[in-house]
Design a protein around this nucleic acid. Structure first.
Lengths: 200, 200
DNA sequence: GCGTGATTTGACCAAGTGGTCAAAGCTACG
DNA sequence: CGTAGCTTTGACCACTTGGTCAAATCACGC
């Protein structure tokens, strides 16, 4: 069953998702109103509901596509590559995502802050097993003496925390730095952190 | 002008603030309803509004007390102490706060995610000048060869990110770890990270 | 036990909410 | 053209929301 869409459908659906991402990522699910989304998308509320059956549906579709792109960088961690290079590359990819997709990062943060009511299963399922797998890879590297002995789970958490911080807490970071672009400095600093940490 | 309060006032005000912290920290300002807070506090809505003039007022009071306790650990960073010890102690204090006051951490995270509409001034004022001051202290330590050369601002960001992550993303962390208490592991890992990073 | 001020509440309100619907407007294609 | 089907909208609805108010209830010092 292939879904065919007219150009208008294509355009309006993506305008709605774009607007929804804007608003949901700032106010969370409950704090967002359909009127806000409709306004941001340049549509009337009934017209918006012609393309999506409910507020839930918009949010669900956003979360779904988010989860895919969110796990991709970790998937790409290659057990046959050079260990430290692989991890530093992962850090870089995650930092790039914070720079290029800050709204996605905040949408995810909002969902987790609320206790992950809509993606709890993905966390204990898909996410956990992916992390378990990659933690094993890192354990292998440690055993082979290629990487310093660190807890692989907390290593992964720290990569998430440090990179997503620049998207989720952007306002705070910029307030403290006085408005300068934080990312060049962040990249240098994170490289330094993980290089010194992981050197065997 | 001293505010005197009866025992009942004392009790109900703190019940409301407690309940407000619970709900605001999960759903953000807009996503929270007075009925939710009233229910959680065990009061009727009109009764709740007898103690606080509005939803705003509850939120404002929570944020105000939050900001105080939030900056305390950084204030305590002592330029006359042993540099690495001072920084590691700061990390420890912030991690303790994530363990003991996760709701406060999430309340703050929610406020920042929304663009800090109510505390923007504190960020560019109070917070920025405190961080500027402590960054200078760290620069001094680096110049004296007591601490490895790192960007002091990103160092501070990284401490915030790594410690608050365990409160704000608690659900995710526990989902991945399978429910074990993350804090012992976090403490060991963070000590390792900052020890290796800061060793001159 | 009584009166006064503190406390609590049921009933209410206007505005905002997610969502519906029938009718109108538009577009592509024969 | 014409028309069938896609798109848009104004009017509307039931429910929730933040907040008010007058009246009822309660606690406490005399």
């Amino acid at each position: 069953m292939v879904i065919t869409r007219t150009r208008i459908q294509e355009k309006n659906r993506s305008a709605i998702l774009e607007a929804g991402l804007d608003v949901f990522s700032q106010y969370g699910f409950r704090g967002t109103t359909l009127d806000q989304i409709a306004e941001a998308a340049g549509l009337s509320k009934p017209n918006l509901l012609y393309y999506f059956p409910s507020k839930e549906a918009i949010h669900a579709e956003l979360l779904e596509t988010l989860l895919e792109t969110w796990l991709d960088p970790l998937h790409a961690l290659d057990d046959t590559g050079d260990p430290i290079r692989e991890i530093l590359d992962y850090v870089q990819r995650k930092l790039d995502m914070s720079r290029d997709y800050p709204r996605e990062s905040r949408l995810f943060a909002n969902e987790i802050l609320q206790g992950a009511p809509r993606i709890g299963d993905n966390l204990t399922g898909e996410l956990k097993s992916l992390v378990d797998e990659k933690a094993q890879v890192i354990r292998g590297w440690i055993a082979a003496g290629k990487v310093a002995a660190v807890d692989p789970y907390h290593l992964i958490f720290s990569i998430w925390a440090l990179t997503q911080h620049y998207a989720d807490f952007d306002v705070q970071v910029r307030a403290v730095l006085g408005g300068d672009d934080p990312f060049p400095g962040a990249e240098a600093y994170l490289t330094q952190v993980f290089s010194t940490l992981l050197r065997p």
